[in-house]
Amino acid sequence: MASSLSSRRTLLAAAGSAAVLGATGLLAPARAQGIAPTRSMRGGSNNYRPGAPVVERIGGGGFWMSGTVRRAGDGAPLKGQRIQIWAHTTEGHERDPKSHGATLTDANGAFRLEMPQIVPAFGQAHGHLAFEGDGFETVFLRPVMNSPRDTSLTADFVLQPV
């Protein structure tokens, strides 16, 4: 009885993971050789401000938002891409214009922007990032911090060419 239960569980687990892999495109032959694009996260675009300016630093700083931007398919790093970052911080609400700032990726496709400490808002300590630019589909991310005491957060983009 126990073995039949466990084999049924194994079968269910295998079928479940196959379904997940299939749904995410990891089993699709056409994409097997490439890196899949990052999908926008739920709530990612909330309180987005189109065209927020590129800044040296958002407010007084003390917290680091970083990540990478690559191209879907071959995974090549993308230089000079504009990433907008915003969050509820010790210096302002998500909706405040001063809580928003943008930065550009370097030659390695990496970006890094200093901002005020993110604090829990609407139930979770989280940040928002947006890719805005020509040539690729727009992506909105909403990473959640493991602990509200963290002083950094990362988010990586894989962009789909249009």
Binding site: R42, G43, S45, N47, R95, A121, R142
Partner: peptide
Amino acid sequence: GLWITSPPDVIDALAFRAPAAFS
């Protein structure tokens, strides 16, 4: 009060498309 603070977050919650289970 939450709606006034951040309308899109509350609209997402009311429409059952928020990112977190607590919503």
